[in-house]
């Protein structure tokens, strides 16, 4: 088959036909991405809080669980949550594909997000903790008033990167029946015996959404870098 023959296989009718279906599913995919992301951001704080517990054995346990989640493929985790979890005695529960997707990807990526939080928190100088103790802030206030407002802004670009990465991982959820772009495209393909058009459209959608976002994130990164380099306190240097 020559190249021309292959191109001739491209059928505009199928492309135009499947486009609106995939466009509609795009909103679902975007919505799911956002839900997973918010879940990961929130759970990331949970991990960070657990890791700040001083007991050594507990810390090791938390680290192990996080490592375990991070090193297992998200697809396996989704399958487990969807098919195996309901069979677990006592705690087992059957989640809908949507809930499974949010929980599964949310938990998986929360372990990465937690690392980002940690890098942000560790970049806050020790003197900031000490000043907040000297001014007698409560533990909670130390976090909310002093440490997090300094720890989070510099890692916003990194967090943004993970939003894009998660967006690209969301099609995994088609495996448990979440009707995002990929599942819709595959169903169309199977029904009409035409794979190339719907799948190409899906790929283009992902490109169109990810690429500008990644440009935006790197711009953001540049800006943050400039801002935080400027705000670093030079030791005893006059800036009058």
């Amino acid at each position: 088959m020559s190249v021309m023959d292959k191109i001739r296989q491209w059928n505009w009718e199928h492309a135009i036909d499947s486009f609106p279906l995939i466009f509609k599913a795009m909103w679902l995919t975007l919505g799911l991405t956002l839900a997973c992301y918010l879940c990961a951001l929130a759970l990331g704080f949970g991990w960070t809080a657990l890791r700040s517990v001083k007991a050594r054995w507990f810390n090791a346990l938390v680290r192990f669980v996080m490592q375990f989640i991070r090193t297992t493929p998200p697809l396996v985790q989704l399958y487990f949550l969807f098919y195996a979890w309901p069979l677990v005695p006592y705690v087992g529960y059957s989640f809908s594909p949507l809930t499974t997707a949010i929980l599964g990807l949310g938990i998986h990526f929360s372990t990465y997000i937690a690392e980002i939080y940690r890098s942000g928190i560790e970049s806050v100088p020790k003197g900031q903790w000490e000043a907040s103790i000297a001014l007698n802030y409560s533990r909670f206030q130390q976090w909310t008033k002093i440490i997090l407002p300094q720890a989070l802004p510099p890692v916003i670009p990194m967090l943004g990167n993970y939003l894009i990465i998660m967006f690209k991982e969301v099609p995994l959820t088609s495996a448990i029946g979440f009707a995002g772009m990929l599942l819709v495209a595959r169903e169309y393909a199977q029904d009409h015996w035409s794979y190339i058009e719907p799948l190409t459209i899906v790929a283009l959608f992902f490109l169109a959404l990810s690429y500008p976002s990644s440009l935006f994130v790197s711009k953001l990164e540049e800006r943050m870098n400039r801002r935080f380099r400027k705000n670093e306190q030079p030791k005893g240097v006059a800036v009058e």
Binding site: P125, G127, Q128, I146, Q233
Partner: peptide
């Protein structure tokens, strides 16, 4: 410690 205050070598102002 509410009775104690401290000034640090590195100032430690909240940036």
């Amino acid at each position: 410690r509410s009775k104690i205050g401290m000034v640090f070598q590195q100032f430690n102002l909240f940036p």
